[in-house]
Design a protein around this nucleic acid. Structure first.
Lengths: 233, 233
DNA sequence: TTTTTCAATAATGAATACAATATTTGCACC
DNA sequence: GGTGCAAATATTGTATTCATTATTGAAAAA
């Protein structure tokens, strides 16, 4: 049985398109700097320009697209300065999420995160980067969710989305990877101890290191050919 | 001379309408819970439905409007639970803005804020509430601006906008007002000392007290009559 | 009187059409 | 070969139209 109770889920075209475009940006199908030709996308998605344009406005407002009057939309790009601007804000939000998560999360949620953690550790041992990243993101989402604050979640995700524009996955060094894994062990411990201060501190440190990884990726990728792109999973 | 250098400022209709609608919501011309009839607004603004609807999507995404598929848009309302959800996030952002402001603000900016502070103190003494609020907002904006982080500014303003839905101005008690003024004296002192930690702490306390004021306003205003309503033409 | 049904009306969702603005292309000219 | 211009083309911005979904209201049934 599928969605037979609860409020009827109805969605509008423009919302679906927002999600679809977000996916295209995150997957790299649309790369930073790419123009977003309306008609072509309409043909591709089998829709008219009206809902597409509504979606473009929303994504523009989120900072994922840059809307140039009379000149269409481009996928936004991130400079190193942008990273330095965004990360402190994410840090503040992540610190809060750590505090709230520790205050509010139940044993079941800890168990879930613990399971994810050890699965991720396995992927780390096996050097399975894409799988590692997938679980890594799930852990951070779980912590954010445990804070039980949808506004916090939305704000954080908006910034995380912008960071994803950097498409930094390909560039993590082994040394950095090992360090990240150690930080995750601290994160798990802080969660198990429900030590909000500690969790905030570790998450902050974790994010600081991620910042350097992302900036390095931007340096490496600067001026890269647009090419067919990289398959990340 | 007016805007004779820098990139040409061109704006699109939908952006103007976003601003216009924001203004109508903040001013109370559109109240929480009000429906937003498309055709009537189009007539009022002298535009067609297309750009208006684009604007509605943007404001919906910001949380200022609630978009109900096939049933139009309503001005969002704030419950006390919403306040409790939003304020901690604002607190985290404001703490960061205090830290950054102290690290980055110049003597000229302090002088500007000091001038605003004493002007506000005067309005407080004279019990001129609207003028007090105007300057109060300018001070908080100046601090936010001194942090020199547009992303932080945007995120904070998005939340502040949602809070404004509560339209709490009318309901500040004298006791609360005096307390707020004392907190502002501490804020000025922390700024002059460039004491980021202290500023964060005071701003946090200031916000906590504001939270109670806003929640009280929601309690007072719950179920209030919609009044004479909005003249659409 | 209250409730139910269903046509009439109004509102929204999406597609199309038209207008204004960029961009490209070709050609004259240096 | 490179510039500058202008027509042709393409793209975007806005308005209008058509389709679909709510809402209203009046009549019929309970």
């Amino acid at each position: 049985m599928n969605q037979m109770s609860g409020p009827v889920v109805r969605t509008t075209l423009h919302e679906e398109i927002v999600e679809r475009l977000r996916g295209m940006i995150f997957s790299g199908e649309l790369k930073g700097g790419d123009r977003v030709p309306e008609q072509r996308l309409c043909d591709m998605l089998g829709i008219s320009r009206t809902p597409l344009r509504e979606a473009l406005k929303v994504l523009g407002n989120e900072g994922l697209l840059e809307l140039l009057p009379n000149r269409g939309a481009r996928v936004a790009t991130l400079s190193e300065d942008d990273i330095d601007e965004i990360f402190p804000v994410m840090g503040a939000l992540e610190a809060l999420s750590g505090e709230l998560a520790c205050a509010r999360l139940g044993d079941d949620e800890i168990a879930e995160i613990r399971a994810l953690h050890y699965q991720m550790a396995l992927h780390h041992t096996r050097r399975e980067l894409p799988a590692y990243f997938r679980i890594n993101q799930q852990i951070h989402e779980a912590i954010l969710k445990a804070a039980k604050n949808p506004t916090l979640e939305a704000q954080y995700n908006a910034l995380a989305g912008r960071i994803r524009l950097a498409r930094f996955r390909a560039n993590m060094s082994d040394a950095r990877w090992d360090q990240a894994m150690r930080e995750h062990e601290e994160i798990l411990k802080a969660l198990e101890d429900r030590d909000g201060k500690k969790l905030s501190e570790v998450l902050g440190r974790h994010l600081e290191n991620k910042r350097e990884t992302v900036k390095q990726a931007i340096r490496d990728g600067a001026g890269e050919a647009h090419g067919p792109g990289v398959a990340y999973d």
